[in-house]
Amino acid sequence: MQILAETNLFDFDLVIKQIPDLLKYLPVTLELAALAMCIGIVLGLLLAVIRLKKIPVLRQIAAFYISIIRGTPAIVQLYIAYFGIPMFLKYMNLNHGTNFDISAFPGFACAVFAMGFNESAYNAETIRAALGSVDRGQIEAASAIGMTYPQMLRRIILPEAMTVALPGLGNSFIGLIKGTSLAFTCAVVEMTAQGKIMGGRTYRYFEVYVSLAIIYWAVTIIVEQLLKFLERRLELPEQIDKAATSEAERQEEKEAENYKYDSDTKFEKKLSEQYST
């Protein structure tokens, strides 16, 4: 450390000192991640249901979409959104008489869409596996009482699939938080972008990246804890409170008398005699 301090090779104080400046941009990072995750889950669920229910035409489109998204790098998708969306709006203005203000279209929205779509392709597979894991018997029981598929999905399948999907979705959310560092390509100044700007001012790039690493890590730890908490919330209680149980057991004993079913031995004996000859 002595040598480092004398030569000023690594300025540890700076690492700590610039964290508050970087943290000012944490909300942008989190907003990006949260909005993209919302798109990713809604679209992912849609894709998963399409693939699971094998809806014709839509199913092929979904498979094609997932293949493209998973087969191209996120940064390329961000560039395509950033250049493509304004071009599309311009095309609409020219050919369909709409009046979009292209220059006012925020890069932030481009980044949210690009990352949301990217996320949806991966979530689709996680959600599909989770939906598929729900016991068929419960689905049959729900159909047997006359529930429609949307009712079943909302009230029976999703609550159960959620517990299965949560670790996978949490994983991809953590990935997404870090993935937002690519949003600079869409001219969005989030945490990493701000870090680059600050590094450019002081030429202390190494320090700034160490600061960023610390922040991202801390955020990830917090998210991990939140997920753990959520998972615990979704668990069914292990034990119903004791008073209710013992009350129920007392009643059970009382009723046990009525539930003694004695099989008709006389009848069985008679038949066995009849058929054994």
Partner: peptide, 29 residues
């Protein structure tokens, strides 16, 4: 299906619902 009721070999109760909620489910939805 609304005019018939089914009892399955493997019960097929909704696992994330209590006994009461299981019975209520069809009545409500």
């Amino acid at each position: 299906r609304r005019q018939t009721g089914m009892v399955f070999q493997r019960f097929n109760l909704f696992e994330r619902k209590t006994a009461l909620e299981n019975v209520m489910e069809g009545l409500v939805t």
